[in-house]
Design a protein around this nucleic acid. Structure first.
Length: 672
DNA sequence: CTAGGGTTAG
């Protein structure tokens, strides 16, 4: 089968459908910008270097001693030439750590802190770790040492290491020092560990931390680009108010940004006003956030007024303000105005990177002006604008949306030839282009690339692939990918799964179809009605009657009579005999009318298996209790085989009771 | 020189 053929070439690393021989070594360096955009992947990408750093720390941090006991003999005066010379020597040395023993008696804690900052600012993570380790062993630490070191661990994306150091702080009062706490919280936030930082914050307060405005602003900044971040932000704002703190311009800046990214225009306006009322004059960042909030709906009227106000207040629109303004116009489909702004940006030398072009291009394409978007794209190339590939991404997506699949694929290939850097969004874009063009080979290459770069697939990746595999009729592969998607905790897409279930059923994979149904059920609260019926039919057709019964039992009111009938017939014929009565009881609870033929089939099954006579008796009694009556052929069959019950009398009594009842109601079935 | 923030693109 085709599907398994694709799987044959693939064991399962990070991504279940790609195989790669050995794990790649360290990934190629990416631009800081790309790294910043996808924090989630950064952790994975730097896994190796992090491990290296950590093994370093664990070898040394065990010996951390207390803060105060430093064996300084000669205490040189503040900022003495000897100290300055020693600091300079350490800074200049190619192996700074080797210099430390020699200058141990000269350097003060502040000098070590100075060195931490120096190595931190020059991004020399190895030196900073070794230095800090030395300081720990020699007890040359104060709160500023912890604060700075943790800050740089945050910048070097080593939050685990920062946490270890924080945990290793022996002094309780040091652990609730507000600077140290702010550092570690900031470190966690900038490394995407929002939830942990909130937990840690609670713990710190329990231990006696008195948070200040910086603490709140640090935590607030984490919620800026998180969906529903506004709610979390509000809780923090309430808390800071309840502690008698007053919001400052920084806090307002974060709040405005949160409002803008959460699409909350009115709230943004409210905070902007409130800020002014409280005597904090807005700066370009505040203006930009509000402008950005206006851009969501392309509200250029308000934006124009805001820019006028801003100029009146003496602020000069900078590149960012102009670009955001351009975005307002583009979103509002005032393309001429946005073109004007673009020309202005170009004239001022503010259009040296692709950002403003991207904004116009994307909005042009989305408004249906593909050829104009292409013209802008050409302008990017002509003017030799610095590009990280976003313009490609935008155009490839635009071409895909317009159904120009070959062109999209060609552009994707162009990108790959020209750039050697990928992030998740770019990979998804290329993947989509290749999938749409039906280029399996390139699809597989993209998946490999993803694995090489240790970029984990996201919801989009899975969705693109599953859709593609379905289209290519690789249903089993689509199934495996769905399993993978579910296993990685992604919400499944109902429409896609629904069609996959149908296809799996039709191509001989009923169990897989059932599995997809169950995954979908567990990842969504309510499913489309018809889906239950669809899976029941598939299971019945495949003879997976027990599974079918389970679905029916849970969803009886949602199933049609015909569907129930099909299950009833099949189950009576070949379902597990021990469940026959249960199935009938379940059917009774639905609107389905159990007919005499169904009962006849059940009776025949039981008669053929005398060992199940108790079940047969239970059935007959249940029928009487619920107004059902066997038909004459069942009746004859039962009488003829009455011996199996031991006492013939029992069955005769039941049958006569049913008969009397049916004469009263005039039908075999008392149910309306 | 102890800690925080807000900018625009796929």
């Amino acid at each position: 089968m085709e599907a398994s053929a694709v799987y044959l070439c693939s064991a399962t690393p990070a991504f279940a459908i790609v195989s790669l021989p050995p794990r790649p070594s360290l990934p190629r360096p990416l631009s800081g910008r790309f790294i910043k955009k996808s924090r989630k992947n950064v952790c994975r990408r730097f896994a190796l270097s992090k491990t290296l750093q950590e093994s370093h720390v664990s070898a040394s941090s065990t010996s951390s001693s207390s803060v105060s006991a430093s064996p300084v003999t000669a205490k040189p005066s503040f900022d003495s030439p000897a100290r300055r010379a020693a600091v300079a020597e350490v800074k200049a040395s190619p192996d700074p750590i080797s210099v430390l023993p020699r200058v141990e008696g000269v350097l003060q804690v502040q000098d070590y802190n100075n060195l931490i900052r120096y190595f931190g600012e020059s991004r020399r993570w190895n030196e900073i770790s070794q230095l800090f380790d030395w300081m720990q062993r020699h007890g040359k630490l104060d709160f500023a040492s912890y604060s700075s070191f943790i800050k740089y661990m945050g910048i070097s994306r080593s939050p685990i290491k920062a946490l270890k150091v924080y945990d290793s702080i022996p002094d309780k009062s040091m652990k609730i020092n507000v600077s140290v706490c702010n550092s570690i919280l900031g470190c966690m936030v900038t490394n995407g560990r929002l939830e942990s930082s909130m937990k840690l914050f609670e713990q710190m307060k329990d231990d006696g931390l008195l948070p200040d405005l910086v603490t709140y602003s640090t935590l607030l900044s984490g919620w800026i680009k998180v969906k529903n971040g506004y709610c979390k932000a509000m809780r923090l704002v309430q808390e800071l108010r309840s502690k008698g703190l007053h919001m400052d311009s920084v806090i307002y800046g974060s709040l405005l940004a949160i409002c803008a990214s959460n699409n909350l225009c009115e709230e943004a306006e409210m905070y902007f006003q409130q800020m002014k009322n409280e005597g904090h004059p807005p700066n370009v960042f505040h203006y930009n956030s509000l402008l950005n909030a206006y851009s969501v709906d392309g509200n250029y009227m308000k934006a124009e007024k805001l820019v006028t106000d801003m100029k009146a207040s003496g602020l000069v629109p900078n590149k960012v303000i102009m670009t955001t303004f351009l975005k307002v116009y583009a979103r509002g489909h005032l393309f001429e105005k946005s073109h004007e702004l673009l020309s202005e940006l170009e004239a001022l030398g503010y259009a040296e990177d692709e950002m403003p072009y991207c904004i116009i291009m994307d909005n042009l394409a989305k408004a249906g002006h593909l050829s104009e978007a292409k013209r802008i794209f050409a302008r990017v190339k002509e003017r030799d604008v610095k590009s990280d590939g976003y313009s490609y991404s935008i155009m490839i997506s635009a071409l895909c949306r317009s159904g120009l699949l070959k062109e999209a694929k060609q552009l994707a290939k162009d990108f790959e030839g020209k750039y050697d850097r990928y992030d998740l969004v770019m990979l998804n874009t290329l993947l989509r282009a290749y999938c749409n063009a039906g280029d399996m080979e390139s699809v597989m290459q993209m998946l490999k690339k993803m694995d090489e770069l240790s970029i984990s697939p996201d919801w989009n990746t899975f969705h693109i692939l599953i859709k593609y595999f379905c289209r290519e009729k690789l249903y089993h592969l689509a199934y495996r990918t769905t399993e993978d998607m579910y296993g990685k905790g992604h919400q499944l897409n109902e429409d896609l799964c629904s069609s996959l279930i149908l296809q799996l059923g039709q191509s001989g994979f009923p169990s897989e179809a059932f599995s997809v149904y169950n995954m979908l059920k567990y990842s969504k609260r309510t499913l489309c009605k018809s889906l239950h019926e669809r899976i029941v039919d598939i299971l019945v057709a495949a003879g997976l009657l027990k599974d079918a019964y389970i679905v029916v039992k849970d969803n009886t009111p949602l199933l049609s009579e015909k569907c129930l009938e099909r299950l009833a017939i099949s189950f009576m014929k070949s379902g597990n005999i021990n469940l026959i009565n249960d199935v009938l009881k379940a059917l009774h609870l639905s609107s389905y009318r159990i007919g005499p033929d169904i009962f006849h089939m059940a009776v025949s099954r039981f008669i053929a298996k005398p060992g199940k006579k108790d079940l047969l008796l239970q059935l007959l009694q249940w029928m009487s209790g619920h107004g059902y009556c066997v038909d004459s052929s069942s009746r004859n069959l039962l009488l003829k085989n009455a011996h199996i019950f031991g006492h013939k009398q029992i069955v005769a009594e039941i049958l006569s009771k049913q008969y009397m009842m049916s004469r009263k109601t005039g039908s075999w079935n008392a149910k309306k």
